[in-house]
């Protein structure tokens, strides 16, 4: 049985009549890295909030269909139980700081205090989580004194320390500068390598291609295509629905119309694929 399973999920926010999610069917296996791409307003965040339980328990509204994580049913569960299985990190790093803690170490321990974890175990777990995400040197800093990238790494560690089964990440790098974004990505990669199940909405296509096991593309509340990164990210369905594609893919497509890029070589998404694809075309003559 899949770790996460959504069956025929349709959801409408309380203030609107138009559904934000329409008939979503999705399975995510233990240890998998699933990426969600789509333009703004496509329903990526709504899907993230649904899997993490904030829909319907925090935002209310009308949820039809079934959401299951680790055998538990969302509508029958309470939010404060659900969050123990599904961790959520979202875009704005600043608003994810609890606001009541004075050091990074205390900030990360906050979730464990709420769970009533013994002090000695708490310290051990916080230290281990900080080591995995590489932020041990920030332990005594004030969370407010950190850069956006560092704050986002603290947010990730604060959830990681609670050891959820699934990590839901809603565009965790969209508010960060390139260095911060790259660092946060490395942390996410590290967590995925450690066997954690990750579901991540993201618009940096090249990175999605690099990390994801599987990709879904969303438009207008629906999943329009699902498959391997290569298959989804080079699909003509993406530009047709206003979803950005990699510059390498775009250039290769254009080159293909002029007979400059082989019809049989898969369209590239990343720099490495592009180098291989474009030099391959060259040698054919």
């Amino acid at each position: 049985m899949a770790l996460v399973e959504l069956s025929s999920v349709t959801y409408t926010y309380p203030t609107t009549d138009k559904p934000a999610l329409k008939d979503i069917n999705l399975k995510v296996e233990q240890g998998e890295f699933l990426a969600i791409v789509g333009s703004n307003e496509a329903g990526k965040s709504t899907l993230c909030y649904t899997i993490s339980g904030f829909i319907p328990h925090f935002f209310h509204g009308d949820l039809v269909g079934e959401v299951q994580v680790a055998g538990l049913n969302l509508e029958e569960s309470k939010l404060n139980e659900w969050v123990l299985n599904v961790g959520l990190v979202f875009q704005n790093p600043f608003n994810q700081i609890s606001g009541s803690k004075f050091t990074v170490f205390e900030e990360i321990a906050f979730g464990l205090e709420n769970l009533g974890v013994k002090r000695s175990e708490m310290i051990e777990r916080v230290e281990r989580a900080m080591e995995l995400t590489g932020i041990s040197d920030l332990a005594d800093r004030s969370p407010y004194s950190l850069s956006g990238g560092q704050q986002q790494k603290v947010a990730l560690t604060s959830i990681l320390v609670m050891e959820p089964q699934v990590f839901v990440l809603d565009e965790p790098t969209s508010q960060l500068d390139p260095i911060g974004a790259r660092e946060v990505f490395e942390v996410i990669k590290e967590m995925s390598r450690a066997g954690i199940t990750v579901i991540m909405a993201e618009h940096k296509i090249e990175w999605v291609a690099e990390f994801a096991d599987r990709v879904i593309a969303m438009h207008d509340g629906q999943i329009i295509i699902e498959g391997s990164p290569q298959e989804v990210l080079t699909s003509p369905l993406l530009p047709e629905h206003g979803i950005g594609t990699s510059r390498y893919t775009q250039a290769a497509k254009q080159a293909r119309t002029e007979g400059l890029f082989s019809e049989t070589t898969p369209l590239p998404v990343t720099l490495d694929q592009a180098v291989a694809g474009f030099s391959g075309g060259n040698h054919e003559d």
Partner: peptide, 15 residues
């Protein structure tokens, strides 16, 4: 200053 050249610039260089 930690700025990468644009993607197609890098590709051109690699090629």
């Amino acid at each position: 200053t930690f700025v990468d050249p644009p993607q197609l610039t890098r590709l051109g260089k690699e090629l």
